[in-house]
Simulated assay, not measured.
Amino acid sequence: MSDLESVADGLRAARAEGRSATELALRCRTELGSAFGVISFIAVFRSAFDVPLPVLQRAQAWQGFGWGAEQISDEEFSDLLAPWLTD
């Protein structure tokens, strides 16, 4: 099992425990450490929750990541991912 698959499994388990989208994203970043980036974020969330690529491309602008000039808030990030993080 690759690191990305292992992190995806951990995110699924954390979501089942009630973790929010922002908590999952922060966990992803922490677990991947120096391997964390736009591509790994998209790969892990796509694997864990089957989020469509265009949604993840928008989600990667979350202010918690600090990537790029145009950033989205915690609320927008959570709302964007909500349809795929349902129980």
Rank of each mutant, 00 (worst) to 15 (best):
residue 32 L to T: 12
residue 9 D to S: 12
residue 47 S to F: 05
residue 74 D to C: 02
residue 34 S to L: 11
residue 57 Q to W: 01
residue 11 L to T: 05
residue 87 D to S: 12
residue 43 A to K: 15
residue 50 D to L: 12
residue 72 I to C: 12
residue 20 S to E: 11
residue 1 M to C: 03
residue 37 G to K: 00
residue 64 G to F: 10
residue 34 S to Y: 07
residue 64 G to E: 08
residue 51 V to P: 07
residue 7 V to P: 00
residue 3 D to T: 09
residue 21 A to H: 07
residue 39 I to N: 11
residue 82 A to R: 03
residue 66 G to N: 11
residue 29 R to V: 08
residue 22 T to E: 14
residue 42 I to H: 08
residue 46 R to G: 13
residue 70 E to L: 14
residue 40 S to Q: 04
residue 80 L to E: 01
residue 3 D to K: 15
residue 81 L to R: 02
residue 34 S to Q: 09
residue 22 T to N: 12
residue 70 E to W: 11
residue 46 R to Q: 15
residue 36 F to G: 09
residue 87 D to Q: 10
residue 79 D to Q: 06
residue 79 D to Y: 04
residue 10 G to C: 05
residue 23 E to D: 12
residue 21 A to C: 10
residue 81 L to K: 00
residue 51 V to Y: 00
residue 44 V to C: 10
residue 39 I to M: 14
residue 73 S to T: 15
residue 4 L to C: 03
residue 75 E to K: 09
residue 17 E to M: 11
residue 24 L to D: 09
residue 26 L to T: 04
residue 49 F to D: 08
residue 83 P to T: 00
residue 63 Q to E: 15
residue 48 A to H: 00
residue 3 D to G: 09
residue 30 T to S: 14
residue 20 S to I: 11
residue 32 L to V: 03
residue 55 V to P: 08
residue 16 A to Q: 14
residue 61 A to P: 04
residue 17 E to R: 15
residue 77 F to H: 01
residue 6 S to H: 03
residue 23 E to C: 11
residue 11 L to Q: 00
residue 25 A to Q: 03
residue 18 G to I: 09
residue 56 L to F: 06
residue 70 E to V: 15
residue 40 S to G: 02
residue 58 R to Q: 14
residue 11 L to V: 03
residue 85 L to D: 00
residue 7 V to T: 02
residue 61 A to M: 12
residue 16 A to P: 06
residue 33 G to H: 06
residue 65 F to K: 03
residue 39 I to P: 05
residue 80 L to M: 00
residue 47 S to P: 01
residue 2 S to M: 04
residue 26 L to K: 03
residue 48 A to C: 05
residue 75 E to V: 14
residue 4 L to Y: 09
residue 58 R to W: 07
residue 12 R to G: 11
residue 36 F to M: 14
residue 8 A to T: 04
residue 61 A to F: 12
residue 60 Q to K: 13
residue 46 R to L: 05
residue 84 W to R: 12
residue 50 D to G: 09
residue 72 I to H: 04
residue 48 A to T: 04
residue 74 D to V: 03
residue 46 R to W: 01
residue 20 S to W: 07
residue 38 V to Q: 14
residue 30 T to Y: 10
residue 83 P to V: 04
residue 58 R to D: 13
residue 35 A to F: 09
residue 71 Q to L: 13
residue 57 Q to G: 11
residue 81 L to P: 07
residue 69 A to N: 13
residue 11 L to M: 05
residue 3 D to A: 07
residue 30 T to N: 10
residue 10 G to M: 07
residue 59 A to P: 02
residue 41 F to W: 01
residue 54 P to E: 11
residue 53 L to D: 14
residue 83 P to I: 08
residue 86 T to R: 10
residue 56 L to Y: 03
residue 44 V to M: 06
residue 14 A to W: 08
residue 74 D to F: 06
residue 11 L to A: 05
residue 8 A to E: 01
residue 32 L to K: 05
residue 19 R to V: 11
residue 47 S to Q: 15
residue 67 W to V: 06
residue 60 Q to G: 01
residue 30 T to C: 10
residue 13 A to P: 08
residue 34 S to W: 07
residue 1 M to D: 12
residue 37 G to P: 02
residue 19 R to E: 15
residue 14 A to K: 13
residue 17 E to L: 13
residue 55 V to M: 01
residue 31 E to Y: 12
residue 55 V to T: 15
residue 37 G to T: 01
residue 80 L to W: 00
